[in-house]
Design a protein around this nucleic acid. Structure first.
Length: 590
DNA sequence: GGTCGGGGCGCG
DNA sequence: AAAGCGCGCCCCGACC
């Protein structure tokens, strides 16, 4: 059962029950307390809540201690559906423009409210920011119902409506998980983090912006190693400046294309060893140093904002704190609370397995039935596992340099279906067509620039622009990778939301306001004794769980992985094994 | 004083 | 022969 929901003034809201086709079933219901109304319905069978975006209303619900099981996020659905239709050349639907504009205004008001809520630390103050700009609730509800019904029609019109419908459902559930994980936060020990920084960099500088002792020392060593420095003609070379480094090296007779690690590593110059060490430590300091700790860790939790579908391939992005680029070293600071454990589950070699399933390559599937895919493939590469891995990555990324070319030839011969699949995707991209993931996420169409460039080159009379071939091949690599990366993202998303559903089964249902432990935010019925999803990074999830429930959680993760494989790929010989570890500290999970 | 693209590097 | 896919964030340096 679907119910359209729009917030009204103060705590109120409008609800409208919908029929299967999305048309209104009965009158609009005005409720004085929207959070209470949704809590009641969740306790009595629930509904799929249809709202303009999860971002606004769901934050409010979570803070009221209410978790919902299902929703339809119209904004995320629109991105998927309109992306598909634009890519496939369907004409945009003029009549929906007004309705969609109204929903955008509603989401903007939600965002303004959320921003002001983040400013005020007081959680229970009524928040009225954005209220002035909020469009009329009744008109918004009508627009919501109209756009939602339109979306249902467009989903049904897809070449594979079941799969595309699953994608929309999973993306919507992903938005719920994202909000819940943001509220829960990743357990983070500032004392451990600070200890690591101090060990490597020296004590925290008293003056912010000052280089810590170790960095200052290395910077001085770098500068002193240049002749230009010893002749005293210049300011000390700043190791943070690629331009200054290139210049100083050139003055010593070494001309380099860049100051990349891979380039510097092969250079013989006294400045290089301290420079390499400087670069590594400077990055830690600037990206994840003390100021990061101050800015992002509160009450022992790191709470990044996840951006569902923020990457074209459907992977998530994050805003603030670089949540998806945490250096592996700092996993030591991710420690479960006393009496709790981290259940860390990552999909082993997800992308090559996805390719095997996509292509329906039987020989490949047979190899992927085992735990270590590359080890199984090694036989085809003279028993060398490393070669098998290079070949796979090259096939998926479009690399063909060095040894990769020969390895690709082996791959082509032994696994023709898998090779054919990515080659076809690459060809489509080069020709300016779009490709789709297994659940139907579409890659963006080529830009006008790209079209102009490549069409010019197709004209036999025109001067051949080398950039045209370059651009075409680049797009071929993009689409080649897209089909694999985006389908892997499909699998991971379905796995994540399946795990969420599994966890809900071992978690108490929603409680009433009276049962809330204290006057603080409370996620998904978690209180202080229930497992919570706290991290998701492309092919890996972390659940923070009471230690005595960790094994149950691990089993739930395994079921979620099986469910994802079945739902996304149907019957396939390919296995999608999960590496699951129950640990105190993230760094101990392999 | 700000913005913005590039270089570089962390993660998958 | 040149070159692999996707992000976010830091610093620098050019620019307004």
């Amino acid at each position: 059962m679907r119910v359209a929901v729009v917030p009204g003034p103060r705590q109120s809201g409008l609800l409208c029950w919908l029929r299967e086709d999305g048309s209104p079933d009965g009158d609009v219901v005005k409720v004085p307390d929207l959070v209470a109304a949704i809590r009641d319905h969740e306790q009595n069978g629930g509904a799929r809540w249809v709202w303009p975006s999860s971002a606004g209303p769901y934050q409010r619900l979570l803070r009221g201690g209410v978790c919902v099981a299902r929703c339809h996020d119209v904004a995320l659905a629109d991105a998927l559906i309109l992306g598909r239709d634009a890519a496939l050349g369907a004409a945009p639907d003029e009549q929906d423009d007004a309705a969609r504009a109204l929903l955008r205004a509603c989401r903007a008001a939600d965002a303004a409210e959320a921003a002001s809520r983040a400013d005020q630390q007081a959680l229970f103050d009524p928040v009225e920011a954005g209220a002035a700009d909020r469009p009329d609730p009744r008109r918004t509800l009508d627009a919501l119902i109209e756009v939602h019904a339109d979306q249902l029609r467009r989903i049904a019109a897809d070449e594979h409506p079941d799969r595309f419908g699953l994608l929309v459902t999973a993306e919507s559930a992903g938005a719920l998980v994202a909000a819940e994980m943001n509220l829960a936060g990743l357990p983070w020990r500032p004392d451990v983090h600070d200890g690591l920084l101090t060990d490597m960099l020296g004590p925290r500088p008293a003056v912010p912006g000052q280089r810590p002792a170790r960095l200052a020392d290395l910077a001085a060593q770098v500068a002193a190693a240049f002749r230009s420095h010893t002749r005293g003609r210049h300011e000390p070379v700043n190791p943070d400046s690629p331009a200054q480094l290139l210049h100083a090296l050139a003055a010593d007779g070494i001309r380099l294309p860049s100051t990349r690690l891979a380039v510097l590593r092969d250079v013989d110059h006294p400045a290089i060893p301290p420079l390499l060490e400087y670069k590594e430590l400077a990055r830690l300091h600037s990206a994840f140093g003390w100021s990061w700790l101050d800015m992002w860790v509160r009450n022992g939790r790191f709470s990044p904002e996840y951006v569902v579908g923020g990457v074209v391939s459907g992977r998530w992005a994050s805003r603030g704190g670089g949540a998806l680029q945490i250096p592996r070293l700092l996993r030591q600071a991710v420690v479960a609370d006393p009496g709790w454990a981290l259940v860390v589950a990552d999909a082993a070699q997800l992308e090559p397995r996805v390719l095997a399933a996509l292509a329906g390559d039987r020989a490949f599937a047979a190899a992927a039935a085992a735990g270590d895919l590359y080890a199984e493939l090694a036989a085809a590469f003279g028993g060398d596992r490393a070669k098998a891995k290079v070949a796979m990555l090259s096939a998926m990324y479009g690399g063909a340099g060095g040894e990769a070319g020969q390895l690709l030839a082996v791959l082509r011969q032994r696994f023709p279906a898998a090779d054919g699949y990515v080659e076809a995707a690459a060809r489509a991209g080069q020709e300016g067509r779009v490709v789709r993931s297994v659940l139907g996420r579409t890659c963006p169409p080529p830009s006008a620039n790209w079209r102009a460039l490549t069409e010019e080159a197709a004209d036999p009379d025109a001067e051949r622009d080398p950039r045209a071939g370059q651009a075409a091949r680049a797009r071929g690599r993009f689409t080649r990778n897209f089909v694999v990366q985006a389908s892997a993202a499909d699998w991971a998303l379905v796995m994540l939301v399946s795990l969420r559903a599994e966890l809900a089964k071992i978690t108490r249902p929603n409680r009433t306001q009276d049962e809330l432990p204290s006057a603080g935010p409370d996620s998904c019925g978690a209180g202080r004794d229930q497992p919570e999803l706290v991290f998701f990074q492309h092919d890996e999830v972390i659940v923070h769980s009471p230690r005595h429930k960790a094994d149950v959680v691990a089993a739930a993760a395994a079921r979620a992985a099986s469910a994802a494989s079945r739902l996304v790929f149907g019957p396939t010989g390919v296995a999608f094994p999960l590496n699951t570890a129950v640990v105190d500290c993230y760094a101990d999970a392999k």
